[in-house]
Every structure is written in structure tokens, then in C-alpha cells.
Measured scan of single mutants.
Amino acid sequence: DETGKFLVLSLYDYQEKSPREVTMKKGDILTLLNSTNKDWWKVEVNGRQGFVPAAYVKFL
């Protein structure tokens, strides 16, 4: 199980638009929880879990 094993870097600021999403700032290091959807990845940032656009992050 690779859940929570990968870190990704936020390339852009992102403001959550729904309760299922999370806000991140450019340069944030996020824990990747799920990347099965090619468009939206589930991450943990600042103690919160939610989705961010996959195009806004990259693997470290």
C-alpha cells in the first residue's frame, strides 16, 4: 500500500471551491493520498484532506 508514501509539490496557489477540495499555496509540500483520478488528486495539506487539480502539483 503506497498511500501517504509520496510527496508532491504545489506549483500554483489553489483556492478550494467546494468542501471536498483543499486550499494550497505555491511551494507547499503535500502528502499524496490518492492519484487514481487523472484530473483530481487527493492530498493532505496542513492537517486537512481533500482534492486538488492534478495539473497543479508534481512529484518530488
Rank of each mutant, 00 (worst) to 15 (best):
D1M: 14
D1L: 14
D1T: 14
E2K: 14
E2F: 11
E2Q: 14
T3E: 13
T3D: 13
T3W: 12
T3Q: 14
T3H: 14
G4M: 12
G4P: 14
K5D: 10
K5C: 15
K5M: 11
K5Q: 11
F6T: 15
F6H: 13
F6G: 11
F6I: 15
L7G: 03
L7C: 12
V8L: 15
V8R: 01
V8A: 09
V8P: 00
V8G: 08
L9D: 00
L9E: 11
L9M: 13
L9A: 06
S10V: 15
S10L: 06
S10W: 06
S10Q: 03
L11A: 06
L11F: 05
L11Y: 05
L11M: 10
Y12A: 13
Y12G: 07
D13C: 06
D13F: 04
Y14M: 02
Y14N: 02
Y14I: 02
Y14P: 03
Y14D: 02
Q15Y: 14
Q15F: 14
Q15N: 13
Q15H: 13
Q15K: 12
E16V: 06
E16G: 15
E16Y: 05
K17M: 11
K17D: 06
K17Y: 05
K17R: 13
K17L: 09
S18K: 07
S18L: 08
S18R: 08
S18F: 06
P19C: 10
P19H: 10
P19Y: 09
P19W: 11
P19M: 08
P19V: 09
R20A: 13
R20M: 14
E21H: 06
E21D: 06
E21P: 04
E21W: 04
E21S: 06
E21R: 04
E21I: 04
V22T: 05
V22F: 12
V22R: 01
V22M: 09
T23C: 07
T23K: 03
T23F: 04
T23D: 03
M24R: 00
M24F: 07
M24W: 02
M24G: 00
K25E: 07
K25I: 08
K26E: 07
K26Y: 05
K26D: 02
K26C: 08
K26I: 06
G27S: 03
G27N: 06
G27W: 05
D28P: 01
D28T: 07
I29T: 07
I29S: 04
I29N: 02
I29C: 08
L30V: 08
L30N: 02
T31F: 11
T31V: 15
T31A: 09
L32D: 00
L32M: 05
L33Q: 03
L33G: 00
L33M: 07
L33Y: 04
L33D: 00
N34A: 08
N34V: 08
N34I: 07
N34F: 06
N34Q: 09
S35M: 14
S35Q: 10
S35H: 10
S35R: 12
T36L: 09
T36W: 10
T36M: 11
T36P: 03
T36F: 09
N37H: 11
N37F: 08
N37C: 10
N37V: 05
K38M: 09
K38P: 13
K38H: 10
D39F: 15
D39C: 14
D39Y: 15
W40S: 02
W40N: 01
W40Y: 07
W40P: 00
W40M: 06
W40A: 01
W41H: 02
W41I: 07
W41D: 00
W41T: 03
K42M: 15
K42S: 07
K42L: 15
V43D: 00
V43N: 00
V43H: 00
V43K: 00
V43A: 01
E44F: 05
E44C: 11
E44D: 09
V45G: 06
N46T: 05
N46K: 09
N46C: 09
G47H: 06
G47Q: 06
G47K: 04
R48F: 07
R48Q: 09
Q49D: 06
Q49K: 10
Q49M: 09
Q49H: 08
Q49I: 15
G50S: 01
G50I: 03
G50L: 03
G50D: 00
F51M: 08
F51N: 03
F51P: 00
V52N: 00
V52C: 04
V52P: 00
V52D: 00
V52T: 01
P53T: 03
P53K: 04
P53G: 02
P53Q: 03
A54S: 14
A54Q: 05
A55M: 12
A55W: 07
A55Y: 09
A55K: 15
A55D: 09
Y56T: 08
Y56W: 06
Y56F: 13
Y56D: 03
Y56C: 14
Y56Q: 06
V57D: 01
V57F: 04
V57P: 00
V57K: 00
V57I: 10
V57Y: 02
V57A: 02
K58D: 09
K58N: 08
K58E: 14
K58Q: 15
K58P: 02
K58R: 13
F59W: 09
F59V: 15
L60P: 06
L60T: 08
L60K: 05
